[in-house]
């Protein structure tokens, strides 16, 4: 008899469904990490050893803090799922390459311990932890956080300012002069040969990484496209005021590639945990983040606004989720 050969005590009686896809959190997190890696490595190559140290210290300390918090909270240790690595990596990719590495560890502490675990851990945080870490460092060490390495442009002009800084402080003309021509500038910004945060400069590698995430279905294409397009349209329409006093005279190509917009739109505004869960909600989120970025860049005191724009929209996520619901089957209107 079949019955005698088997042990019924071993039957698993969990509820349906009994089969599941192979998708997992760690697979998603590690995939995002890998897609970020090329841009991060470019940053290490272009900005040098200190930039690499900032990233290594940031990632390792993020993992360590996650381990310690989970140990103290007596929760399962999940450092292998890649989410702490991702937070550390994203945070440090958005830090200046000249930052003393210990500050990256402080940023990781704030990101992991305060922004993530104090909120309840994975999936519970309202704000993007990496951006909270960056914002905290910004108010703690404003000078270190706005000191950049020297870049030498293709026409051998040496500058220690980011393109957005130059635009804010010296104007568009000075910006073009630094690079020689608009074409040179676009090329440098596309390939990543410009001042800025460690991992934000190489537009092409970030876009390729982002496209892979879209292909894998981890990111809805609408989010980066709408956020970037909103910034492009906004800066084109209102970005030229200072010089020309007219509408539609800004430089949208510059603004799309400047600052942290590309990395923010592809990797931060798409962070599942902190953005709305519905596609419609995500579109609202991306639009809002784009508008706030334009507002901060053009009217605010800071030259760059992506980080704060996303954090501000993170605040609205629960509200958007409350009101934007999927269309129910069998319910008209």
């Amino acid at each position: 008899m079949a019955e005698e050969k088997i042990n019924k005590e071993l039957f698993n009686v969990s509820i349906s469904p009994h089969i599941r896809s192979k998708e997992s959190i760690s697979k998603i997190m590690w995939t995002v990490n890998i897609t970020l890696l090329p841009a991060a490595l470019f940053g290490a190559y272009y900005f040098g050893l200190n930039a690499l140290m900032v990233m290594v210290v940031g990632v390792l300390s993020a993992v360590l803090f996650e381990y310690l918090v989970q140990k103290i909270r007596k929760k399962p240790i999940t450092i292998a799922d890649g989410s702490a690595v991702l937070t550390g990596l994203l945070l440090t990719m958005c830090l200046p390459p000249t930052l003393p590495p210990y500050m990256a560890a402080v940023g990781s502490f704030i990101a992991i311990v305060i922004a993530k675990h104090a909120m309840g851990g994975l999936g519970q945080n309202i704000f993007n932890p990496a951006h909270i870490g960056r914002a905290a460092l910004m108010v703690s060490w404003p000078v270190a956080m706005t000191t950049w390495s020297s870049m030498t442009t293709s026409i051998d002009v040496v500058s220690a300012a980011t393109p957005l800084n130059m635009l804010k402080q010296q104007g568009y003309g000075a910006l073009i002069d630094t690079f020689g021509s608009a074409g040179n500038m676009y090329q440098a910004m596309f390939l990543g040969f410009r001042n800025g945060s460690i991992g934000e400069t190489c537009t092409v590698l970030l876009i390729l990484g982002g496209l892979f995430l879209i292909y894998k279905g981890y990111v809805n294409w609408q989010v980066p496209v709408i956020m970037i397009a909103t910034v492009a349209v906004g800066t084109w329409a209102f970005g030229g005021l200072k010089e020309f006093g007219t509408l539609f005279s800004g430089d949208p190509i510059f603004h799309m590639m400047a600052g942290g917009l590309i990395i923010g739109a592809f990797f931060m505004a798409t962070d599942m945990v902190t953005i709305p869960i519905t596609k419609k909600g995500q579109i609202i989120f991306a639009l809002g983040a784009g508008i706030l970025t334009v507002l901060i860049r053009l009217k605010g005191g800071y030259p760059e606004g992506v980080c704060y724009a996303i954090l501000l929209m993170n605040c609205l996520t629960p509200l958007i989720d409350r009101f934007v619901q999927p269309k129910k089957f069998g319910v008209r209107g």
Binding site: T78, L122, G123, Q124, M272, I277, P326
Partner: peptide, 18 residues
């Protein structure tokens, strides 16, 4: 593990639920 709000369940739900 906790929900990471990836939204896949919303995409999969034939009844349009959350």
């Amino acid at each position: 593990s906790p929900c990471i709000r990836c939204g896949r369940c919303l995409d999969a739900c034939p009844m349009g639920l959350n």
